[in-house]
Nucleic acid binder design. Structure first.
Lengths: 282, 282
DNA sequence: GGCAGCGATACCGCAGGGGTATCGATCCCG
DNA sequence: CGGGATCGATACCCCTGCGGTATCGCTGCC
């Protein structure tokens, strides 16, 4: 299979519409139809169930969609990492570290400071990203190493080292009745219909259904909380960045959050190894 | 980048010889030269340093070699898994389990028996393979799940669950002076110039240098030991399969061996999940 | 200095990828 | 119930680009 075929198939499988997929790929619709048919014939598998009005994935098609995305990520990573290795031209190459914007910021700061003080430290570029994006960035080569937070982020297929485990707090508007309590339980929080959790956009940029206001970043989130429109559960360390108009109260039975440093499994970079070593020794 | 280009590059990078690489690929040498040049131009990177007498990998080239192998494995896995999903045709698909030949055999037997007794058990095909092959089998889709042995096998990029940890024993000819001891230390074993460890062929089929006879499988290994030409360190459980003419003696300070069950990180198969669940409950 | 080995270049033929035009089926709407 | 709109498949054509052969240029070696 050629990556061209995989790209074409992924486009169709995502759009479920040959015309739109062709447009997205910048080609006409007939060659796309033909390529998919060839792919199906070569694999001996029907990938798409199509009538003249609708296109649907078969079982085999959804397997290929998942696998093709992984394979295309790997090819993209190969290209990106080779380009960067060439730029580095034998010398010390920089490292791209991905981290969720607004999370673990003092840990991140300490890590960067401590690592920079190492004798053979490489330059580190920090890539702040959205929730759940880190895995993708590592897999397609845009990042070399990332800070993840269990149990929220998936670490499947990555090598990791645990850095820190911390409790969680609920972040409430300053004047809220619960705000004065020394601690609360999950049940207390989930029984607050006036303070639902905000909804975050997924990878495709759309918001999930449900109650709760939409939020796109941490500034919006805290503003919503300060306005008494939402609450939020966050790791204890985020207390350091809180505004005066919101309050953090420990949630005793919320799952603990573990910050881990993760990197792609076949990474052979000395700089990544150094960064990981520094992080585990913090 | 197309997989054709990656395949061509890997061939040249492995052979370090355009003529042989072309032969291996079943094409003539000129198109191969051209394709590599195009790839280099497109990546903006010199991948191979070539004189008219010698070809060598550059820094960027060795990065691409590693990444390209991973990407090609992913593409191959996509193809294989799609084919198998199509054959399964919506029904329950079988599972391919890879295990080192001769290792953990009673554990494997118990796992297969117990899993087969589960209500929704899928057929399990056992793929016995050589040392260190399991990771490759999982990555390129020839196997769905594998039994690995730490610290010998690499689990990078795989999801794993620990099953069992056991001590190691040294396997000696029955009449050997150490054979009567209740236990030994590593130092005792390594000071036996008359009983070196056999050498195993690597992935490329060649034997590493060093003392010790060459062995290709367990039958040869045990025969060499029985003949008084070698000794071997193995997990305690391999005692169950020993011949009468060899003896196992615990090695107190040898590293413990952990048997783990491993599967590719994005595996969504119910059968693999069931097999893992069964294994952890044994 | 002649020769052998190897990668690069020049040139050619054709498979196949991409384009336009059009068909056939299906759904929608009046 | 018929006409139009929509969408994927098919027919056909063009031209890119892949693979082949022939040959060159360089290098190390006897």
């Amino acid at each position: 299979m050629e990556t061209r075929e995989l790209r074409y198939f992924v486009a169709v499988a995502e759009e479920l519409h040959f015309g739109r997929a062709a447009q997205r790929l910048g080609i006409a619709q007939p060659p796309l139809s033909r390529t998919i048919s060839q792919l199906e014939r070569r694999l001996g598998a029907v990938l798409l169930e199509r009538t003249s009005r609708t296109v649907a994935l078969t079982e085999a098609g959804s397997v290929l969609l998942r696998e093709a995305r992984a394979a295309l990520d790997a090819v993209e990573a190969a290209e990106r990492r080779t380009r960067r290795a060439a730029l580095a031209a034998g010398g010390q190459t920089g490292v791209v570290l991905a981290s969720k914007a607004g999370a673990s910021s003092e840990l991140l700061a300490k890590l960067l400071d401590t690592y920079a003080a190492e004798p053979d430290a490489a330059p580190v570029e920090v890539l702040l990203c959205g929730i759940g994006e880190q895995e993708r960035l590592l897999r397609d080569g845009r990042a070399d190493v990332a800070l993840l937070h269990l149990p929220f982020d998936a670490t499947a297929g990555l090598d990791t080292e645990e850095l820190r485990t911390e409790r969680q707090v609920v972040i409430l508007p300053a004047g809220h009745p619960l705000a004065g309590r020394p601690h609360v339980q999950m049940a207390d929080v989930s029984e607050l219909p006036d303070l639902p959790m905000p909804r975050w956009p997924g990878r495709d940029g759309t918001y999930p259904d449900g109650p709760g206001p939409q939020a796109r970043d941490h500034a919006q989130l805290y503003q919503l909380i300060a306005l008494g429109r939402a609450c939020w559960i966050a790791p204890e360390s985020s207390r350091a960045q809180l505004r005066d108009d919101v309050v953090a109260v420990p949630v005793l039975d919320a799952p603990a959050v573990t910050t881990v440093i993760a990197w792609p499994p076949h990474s052979r970079s000395r700089a990544v190894a150094g960064l990981v070593r520094t992080a585990t020794r913090l």
